[in-house]
């Protein structure tokens, strides 16, 4: 069980909202996806802590019902499922959002039952903690990478390939000059990835016990 896979943390939050309010949330989610509406996600993009995140609102009728053996759900509230894949610790993530884009958060969770607003911080912490569900299995295809690394790697690769082709027939001096130009263009992308700093001492202790168990299995 772990919410952590290398540099990514998986957060799951499930919160109730009254059916007649969720249309506001849905409208807001729809709105920010329109061309131009993305300006409202500028804060989120600038925070640059997230690989991918999503909000799914499930009304009582929408809980999957597969066959007769399964009883139908009888619910009054709709439920908002939030999933995030972010870089850093829980506190770093929650605190960053609270400080950087509090109004945005309050729109995302607008009118959810007993949502305390994102400011001040302690009630918001308590709300998220109370409604968070721990992940049983989490997988990341790149535990060593943050979303910053993936974006910079993409830019670097494009420039590097173009340079490699354009400089193929250059003489050494021309090459050198073009190489320096390349470095100026990709200077923000040059950095080396290593393992994540430990997210918490508890997580580290769990990881060490798992590594130990692996080693023991390998010995046998």
């Amino acid at each position: 069980m772990s919410n952590i896979a290398g540099k990514a943390y998986a957060m799951n939050v499930v919160t109730p909202a009254k059916w007649y309010w969720v249309w506001v949330n849905k409208l807001f989610f729809w709105f920010v996806q329109l061309p131009g509406g993305a300006a409202y996600l500028k804060g989120l993009l600038t925070l640059s802590l997230i690989h991918y995140a999503r909000w799914a609102i499930v009304s009582p009728k929408e809980f999957p019902h597969l066959d007769e053996s399964q009883p139908k759900e009888k619910l009054k509230y709709s439920y908002m499922f939030f999933f995030s894949n972010f870089n850093g610790s829980w506190d770093q993530y929650v605190d960053s959002f609270h400080a950087a884009i509090p109004q945005g958060l309050d729109l995302f969770w607008f009118k959810n039952v007993k949502y305390p607003k994102s400011v001040p911080l302690q009630p918001f912490h308590a709300y998220i903690t109370y409604n968070q569900i721990w992940t049983s299995h989490y997988y990341s295809a790149y535990p060593l990478a943050t979303s910053n690394d993936i974006k910079s790697a993409r830019h670097l690769t494009r420039e590097l390939r173009a340079f490699s082709e354009s400089s193929a027939r250059a003489d050494p001096l021309e090459f050198h000059e073009a190489y320096q130009r390349l470095l100026r263009d990709v200077q923000q992308d040059i950095s080396i990835m290593e393992r994540t700093p430990i997210v918490s001492l508890s997580a580290q202790a769990v990881e060490q016990r798992l590594d130990q168990a692996d080693a023991e299995r390998a010995d046998q």
Binding site: F29, V32, L45, H51, Y52, A53, R54, A56
Partner: peptide, 18 residues
């Protein structure tokens, strides 16, 4: 279930390209 907002803070490249 339907995602009402999917936020991509990374890239949409195929995994092998990433």
């Amino acid at each position: 279930v339907r995602n009402h907002l999917f936020f991509n803070g990374s890239t949409g490249d195929p995994l092998n390209r990433q």
